[in-house]
Simulated assay, not measured.
Amino acid sequence: MPTEQSYYLSLEVEGNNVCRTDRRLVINCTGVCVLPRPFETRLLAGREDYYLQYLVKGEMRVWLDGEERLMQPGQAVLYYPHTGYRYAMKGREEVQYYWVHFTGTDADSLIAGCRLPTCTLLQVGGGASVASGFEELFHDFILRDHCFDLSASSKLISICVEISRCLDPVQGGRSGAGGRIRRALIYIHQNYEKEISVPFLAELAHLSPSRFRALFREATGLSPLDYLLVLRLNHARQLMLQTGSSIGEVARAVGYEDQLYFSRIFKKRTGLSPSAYRRGAQR
């Protein structure tokens, strides 16, 4: 389990509660709190930056939009700038949570892109990936080399993206239907040149074919077979541009034994025959 740690961008306390407009993404401070005794933290005016918490042990009482809620391990909460917060230990078990304060001109777009709401308990789960993301961020603060800004920003983005994916059961969930769709997508990308049927993919995902089709379209915007077709044609384009393989060899490499059938599909989708596409690209 983690030990108490805290890292600050500025050695001055006041310098770590600021809104930065001169840089794209800035971590003002970060750390992990280990609190064995009762406590209560209250800042009704909030801060100048974003504040993200991720609870890994114990329980906390949190006040969100004036309502007291119970925060449990595997949950996170994000406070937007100038949003007040209040939380306290519940019970007698030691409380441990990771935290980070960040700002910058791209902070708003990061939060919007990850669809992370304020003052809401986020059901992230107890996987180690979010916690390890924080630990990697701490390493950047310890090292502070010439790549510090870029590396620390990338770690923060990864943490927010991982939380966002855990919240979305279709796009990124590691369990349930979302995890099953992802397993099917991985299989398609690794075996696109093989014969693949919807019933086979549905069985791989432990879903009925109709349910699989619906969730797959929700996740990708395409039916499973359309997705496979687009993937094959994209690989065919790449082979025609980067290799001297014949059209027949390209067709077989992406899963079509019949060169004429491949050429018909390619022209229907691109408006050009494979040979015309290759000549145009070479020119």
Rank of each mutant, 00 (worst) to 15 (best):
Thr3Pro: 00
Tyr8Pro: 05
Tyr8Gly: 02
Glu12Met: 12
Glu12Ser: 07
Asn17Trp: 15
Asn17Asp: 14
Val18Glu: 03
Arg20Gln: 09
Asp22Lys: 14
Asn28Val: 09
Asn28Pro: 03
Thr30Val: 08
Val32Ala: 04
Arg37His: 10
Leu43Asn: 09
Leu44Gln: 08
Gly46Glu: 09
Glu48Asn: 11
Gln53Lys: 09
Lys57Trp: 02
Lys57Val: 00
Lys57Cys: 12
Glu59Cys: 14
Glu59Phe: 13
Glu59Met: 14
Gly66Tyr: 13
Gln75Ile: 06
Val77Thr: 02
Tyr79Thr: 05
His82Gly: 04
Ala88Gln: 05
Met89Thr: 12
Glu94Gln: 10
Glu94Ala: 05
Gln96Arg: 13
Phe102Lys: 07
Gly104Asn: 03
Thr105Tyr: 02
Thr105Lys: 01
Ala107Arg: 04
Asp108Val: 05
Asp108Gly: 03
Asp108Leu: 07
Cys114Glu: 05
Leu121Cys: 12
Gln123Ala: 15
Gln123Met: 11
Val124Ala: 04
Gly125Cys: 09
Ser132Gly: 10
Phe134His: 00
Glu135Trp: 00
Phe138Leu: 02
Asp140Tyr: 02
Ile142His: 08
Ile142Ser: 04
His146Trp: 10
Phe148Cys: 03
Ile159Met: 07
Cys160Glu: 04
Arg165Asp: 03
Leu167Ile: 07
Val170Gly: 05
Val170Ser: 01
Gln171Pro: 07
Gly173Lys: 00
Gly173Met: 06
Arg174His: 07
Gly176Val: 08
Ile186Lys: 12
Tyr187Trp: 10
Gln190Ala: 08
Tyr192Val: 15
Pro199Val: 14
Pro199Ile: 04
Leu201Lys: 01
Leu201His: 12
Pro209Arg: 08
Ser210Gln: 14
Arg211Met: 14
Phe216Ser: 05
Gly221Arg: 04
Gly221Lys: 13
Pro224Gly: 12
Pro224Thr: 09
Leu225Gly: 01
Asp226Gln: 01
Asp226Phe: 10
Thr243Gly: 00
Ser245Tyr: 11
Glu249Gly: 02
Val250Glu: 02
Ser273Gln: 10
Ser275Ile: 05
Ala276Ile: 04
Tyr277Ser: 10
Arg279Gly: 04
Gly280Lys: 11
Ala281Ile: 13
Arg283Ala: 15
Arg283Met: 15
